[in-house]
Design a binder for these strands. Structure first.
Length: 496
RNA sequence: GUCCCCAUCGUCUAGCCUGGUCUAGGACACCGCCCUUUCACGGCGGCGACAGGGGUUCAAAUCCCCUUGGGGACGCCA
């Protein structure tokens, strides 16, 4: 059996950043190609020169890189050269192909020159709107004779595809057969008067010439697929398999708008999410595993299990809560070293002087937070007190632990615990706190939480004994004394 | 307006193709309880859905039709 090589592509138009929806399409294509030992191709649809900007190209590729989606063939990007035998991989550099193929269609009578002006076409459209007809081209230039065409001389013209009679069926892997009456399509333009190819021609020529075997894309292209099938047939290219998946919706159920936060996949990096999480989550946004109930996947695992058969037909909303949960799961899967490496730049950015500290100590600090933080960014609030003494004490915490009658006793007891600890570690501190709490009949929670407030200024954070051990005896005791002074001042103030 | 797609808990979904095993399973969220120094994690339990109406059938979440709702496409954008 000589099976044709699987070749998939993502063909974004670099008019902005990497959209979450584009990422989904890319991921599915990438996973399918990888799972089938096929090739994944990146092609830039930058024919609309006005909307293309190099910085957009970079931003988009950056998004792919962050996610870990790599391509076997594609254009030059940064220090990566163009690669692949089907180049160039930018539509703007492929116009000669489009011209050649358009010319061929013209020769074969499958396309024709249209001399209608923009004004004429606009008028037709308005007319149609008035008469409540679908806005379709009337076919005015469809049957011009060679003489009539010659008589036009130098008049600029566009090239229209001559849509054949009959029915077009898109055999979609996800949707099943989708039938279109060709009457629904008008003779669409494939080449503009300035000679530039229109999207429909460009994609089909590119997909045909690049021998793309599977076109996996958003179902906003489903209607276009009919045009593309006709074009594939007219050009004599073998038909690829189509798979139109539903679009990503926002939490309100609408198409995920470009202007919404999170539309840019790099927004999530900014917010402290792992690329592993995004990959996992986006995969779940339209695909389910054969292994029922399983939702946690690494990129590597996904590669092995992905199948087009398990793609979902209905659109999915983006659910931030579930993303948070998944991110927590992925954070816990990291080794402490990996977590430290990812979190240290964030801490540095928030002016925590990580560089003045021992690597070993940092590793431990990060480790005691691993089970607690839902996003990488939360590390700041969970560790900042290690680097600076609390400037204020949490208000609610103050009321609960510093303004009670026993507050001074609690704090003094805690101080004694610390002083009596012969070894400054988690075990010893824990034992000491438990012993003193029992001896003085104080609830351990009161002791612990008062200490936490004194040491960190907060009511939440890493485990107390772990944190105290890492803070060091001198610093811990200094902060305890400071808190004691604070309490005494407070009560003094209220008494006078 | 025309065409196309979709429709199971609040959300993501399993089941649908190959009707009966579904008093519809899981996950997130939510609510209890347990564990626990807080938060989180984890454990246990609860709440919660086959959009509506017609068929077909002994039997329908599963097949067919209609309605409704949602989405998409109708460019000299991609």
């Amino acid at each position: 059996m000589t099976e044709k090589k699987i070749r998939c592509r993502i063909a974004p138009s670099p008019s902005g950043f990497l959209h979450i929806g584009t990422a989904k399409t890319a991921l599915y294509n990438w996973l399918f190609a990888r799972s089938q030992d096929g090739a994944f191709i990146l092609r830039l649809e930058d024919t609309d020169a006005e909307r293309t900007d190099e910085q957009y190209v970079d931003a988009m590729c950056e998004g792919f890189r962050w996610l870990g989606i790599d391509w076997d063939e594609g254009p030059k990007f940064g220090d990566e050269p163009q690669k692949g035998a089907y180049g160039p991989y930018r539509q703007s550099e492929r116009s000669h192909f489009y011209q050649r193929e358009a010319e061929r269609l013209l020769q074969e009578g499958k396309a024709y020159k249209c001399f209608c002006t923009r004004e004429e076409i606009d008028a037709m459209r308005e007319q149609a709107a008035r008469e409540k007809r679908p806005p379709r081209y009337t076919g005015k230039c469809r049957n011009l004779t060679p003489d009539e065409i010659a008589a036009k001389g130098e008049t600029p013209y566009s090239i229209r595809f001559r849509v054949p009679e009959g029915e077009t069926v898109v055999e979609d892997v996800i949707q099943g057969p989708v039938r279109f009456n060709n009457k629904e399509y008008d003779d669409f333009i494939i080449v503009k008067p300035n000679g530039a190819a229109i999207f429909h021609l460009a994609v089909v020529v590119d997909d045909g010439l690049m021998e793309i075997s599977h076109i996996i894309r958003g179902d906003d292209h489903l209607t276009n697929a009919g045009r593309h099938v006709m074009l594939f047939n007219a050009l004599g290219y073998p038909l690829p398999k189509f798979a139109h998946h539903p679009l990503v919706h926002d939490e309100q159920g609408r198409k995920y708008s470009k202007r919404l936060h999170g539309a840019n996949v790099l927004d999530w990096r900014e917010d402290g999410y792992l690329p592993e999480t995004l990959i996992n989550y986006i995969a779940l946004l339209g695909w389910t595993s054969e292994e029922e109930g399983r939702e946690f996947f690494s990129l590597e695992e996904l590669k092995g299990m992905f199948t087009l058969k398990r793609l979902t037909k209905s659109p999915a909303r983006f659910d931030r809560k579930k993303l948070d949960w998944l991110n927590g799961q992925h954070i816990r899967m990291l080794s402490p070293e990996q977590l430290r490496d990812r979190v240290v730049p964030i801490m540095r950015k928030h002016n925590l002087d990580v560089d003045a500290r021992q690597q070993e100590w940092l590793l431990e600090v990060v480790s005691i937070c691993q089970e607690k933080i839902p996003t990488l960014n939360h590390i700041v609030g969970y560790t900042d007190f290690f680097f600076e003494r609390p400037a204020t004490y949490d208000e609610k915490g103050t009321r609960k632990f510093f303004e009670k009658e026993e507050s001074v006793l609690w704090l003094q007891t805690a101080i004694e615990c610390m002083q009596q600890a012969d070894v400054w570690d988690h075990q010893t501190l824990k034992a000491q706190y438990e012993a003193d709490a029992a001896a003085k009949e104080i609830k351990i929670g009161a002791l612990v939480n008062t200490t936490r407030l004194a040491l960190t200024g907060k009511t939440v954070g890493p485990g107390l004994y772990e944190l105290t051990a890492l803070l060091g005896r001198d610093e811990a005791l200094a902060r305890m004394e400071r808190a004691l002074t604070f309490i005494q001042q407070q009560s003094g103030d209220t008494q006078t």
